[in-house]
Amino acid sequence: MLYLVSVVDDKNAPGSTDGRPDVGEFNERLISAGYWVLAGGLADPAAATVIDYRGEVPVVSDGPFVESKEYLGGVWIWDVPDLDVALKLAAEASKVCRRKLEVRPFQEPVRGQ
């Protein structure tokens, strides 16, 4: 089952980046176990561009979609057997990346051929 694991950062108390070797080791364990699909850190929300084409023409605006003290700092996508495994791994991941995580299953995953 595929899970999106969102790394939540906080502008008022950002997570430290000194745990990157720990995160790398954790990622290597995910890869070895066959759980790894994708991971990546994101640039600061100020680097975001929002595109809204629900009307007649696309509207493009700079900055994050939502102003908030908490923001999406990175993501993992894991392919694990069930929620129990995802939550166990997320607890480890939260410790190594020193941030809160949100774990959400994909409703209908689409995979490339």
Rank of each mutant, 00 (worst) to 15 (best):
L2C: 01
Y3V: 07
Y3M: 08
V5F: 03
S6E: 11
V7M: 15
V7F: 07
V7Q: 09
V8M: 14
D9P: 01
D10H: 15
D10E: 13
K11V: 03
A13E: 13
P14H: 11
P14D: 06
G15F: 10
G15C: 05
G15V: 04
S16M: 04
T17N: 09
T17E: 11
T17P: 00
D18F: 08
D22W: 06
V23Q: 03
V23H: 07
G24N: 11
G24A: 15
E25V: 11
E25K: 15
F26S: 10
R29M: 10
S32C: 02
S32Y: 06
A33Q: 13
A33H: 09
G34I: 04
Y35C: 02
W36H: 12
W36V: 02
W36Q: 04
V37L: 14
V37P: 00
L38T: 05
L38R: 07
A43L: 13
A43M: 11
A43V: 10
A47F: 10
A48E: 05
V50E: 04
V50C: 03
D52E: 10
G55S: 13
G55H: 05
G55Q: 10
E56T: 14
V59E: 12
V60P: 01
S61D: 04
G63P: 00
P64L: 09
P64Q: 04
S68Q: 06
K69T: 07
E70L: 04
Y71G: 02
L72A: 08
G74H: 08
G74M: 13
I77L: 15
W78H: 07
D79H: 14
P81R: 07
P81T: 06
D82N: 15
D82C: 03
D84P: 00
V85H: 04
A86N: 06
L87W: 04
K88S: 12
L89G: 01
L89H: 02
L89M: 09
L89V: 03
A91E: 12
E92H: 10
E92I: 08
E92Y: 06
A93H: 05
A93Y: 09
S94I: 07
K95V: 14
K95W: 15
K95C: 01
V96S: 06
C97E: 09
R98L: 06
R98H: 13
R99D: 00
R99S: 11
R99Q: 13
R99K: 14
R99T: 08
R99V: 03
R99F: 03
K100Q: 12
L101Q: 03
P105T: 06
F106M: 13
Q107K: 13
Q107H: 10
Q107T: 01
E108P: 01
E108M: 12
P109F: 04
V110R: 14
R111G: 08
R111T: 12
G112F: 12
